[in-house]
Nucleic acid binder design. Structure first.
Lengths: 213, 213
DNA sequence: GTCTATATGATGATAGAC
DNA sequence: GTCTATCATCATATAGAC
């Protein structure tokens, strides 16, 4: 019985026809709804009608604010950029001892990833079909391996003789782990996961020398 | 000018109307085409018409072999299972010294992931919308962390005193890194990446004791 | 089993009233 | 800026000839 033309689940409460459905602007609600639905079901599986219903706006309004559905996706990715927050994670960090440094980095990264959970889901889902997204991903990886490496170097300055290539490998191993931990829907105890990972990165398997080749 | 009804880009070469377009069975070509297109553009963005054209079959034939488009996806996932090959990676492995063991594990995992590149792409793309896929992913993670942990324990038997929880953390760190390395489109030198990761897992940051807290 | 033409419904986008 | 009704197109799926 649901009509196949555009309708709105608007409240029947009063005669007030216009405005007011939520405190936020209509445009913001559209972006929120689209972000949530794109993350959950993917870009193509999400209809503009569903976005309109979730945002509690008439479906015509979407195309007043955004020329096309694809432009709506582009606006989400550009206006709600996770890269900015991820960069801030490293930039605002003081120089600490290695363990505290890695723990702080790890928890902040995971926090940022989980704070932008929907964005991450969209990036992961669409990076094979949208070249711009694939490029973003690649740059993010390169950049943050570099950032973590530089930071670890500062942290270790003058206290060790580990070659930079190895430090970079530690940074990469760390970042890749954080990515997977961040991707997993419900890591039961992210803090414990990060702690154990940091232990591995600091000490490795802790073999006696005889066990090495 | 392209007709909007179902057509086939079939060869005009002869009067032979039926059969023969390729050596393989039509059903197999449909599965191949769907797998490739689902991986590249996603499930919803791929039309059955596109699948038919790529497979060089009339579009009606798809629904002779598969009741629905979703059933086609399910057939791909069940008939071309990457889990079997991944399990074999660990099962057929001899007990070796830790470094050789991790290197062999790593290269075989990456080989398996790259051999099933399209399947991996599909799993990654759709695991948030299809519950069965999400479950597969979760089980794969749990199972293989367990497999690697057990294997490392055998490898280390009697030669060390590392607690099992730490071994498990090493196994998890290893697997998560392999997953990301496997996901990345074109890792320039996968072997070097694996080598460096193994070095990190075996020795960590190699700090002097004074650098620990 | 293979192929063609078509039904049925949904989808992105628009026109135009308010 | 907000809302409604509608269009043109395209997608999955079917019917039925060969």
């Amino acid at each position: 019985m649901s009509p196949h033309h555009c309708v709105q689940a608007g409240s029947d409460m009063a005669a007030s026809k216009k405005k007011e459905p939520g405190a936020e602007e209509a445009r913001t609600r559209i972006l929120d709804a689209a972000q949530s639905l794109f993350a959950a079901h993917g870009f193509n599986a999400t209809t503009t009608k569903a976005i309109a219903e979730t945002a509690k706006v008439p479906c015509g309004l979407i195309f007043y604010y955004f020329p096309t559905k694809k432009a709506l996706l582009a606006s989400i990715l550009s206006e709600r950029n996770i890269l900015v927050e991820l960069r801030a994670v490293v930039d605002t960090l003081h120089v600490l001892d290695p363990r505290t440094a890695l723990m702080t980095l790890g928890t902040r990264y995971i926090d940022a990833l989980r704070h932008h959970k929907e964005l991450t889901a969209i990036l992961l889902r669409e990076f094979r079909s949208h070249d711009e997204i694939a490029t973003q991903f690649h740059e993010l990886r390169e950049e943050h391996v570099g950032l973590i490496t530089s930071y670890l170097q500062e942290t270790l300055r003058g206290r060790h003789d580990t070659p930079i290539q190895h430090i970079q490998a530690v940074a990469r191993t760390f970042l890749y782990n954080l990515i997977v931990i961040g991707i997993i829907e419900d890591p039961p105890e992210p803090l414990r996961l990060i702690e154990e990972t940091v232990d591995v990165l600091l000490g490795g398997l802790r073999l006696p020398d005889s066990a090495h080749i």
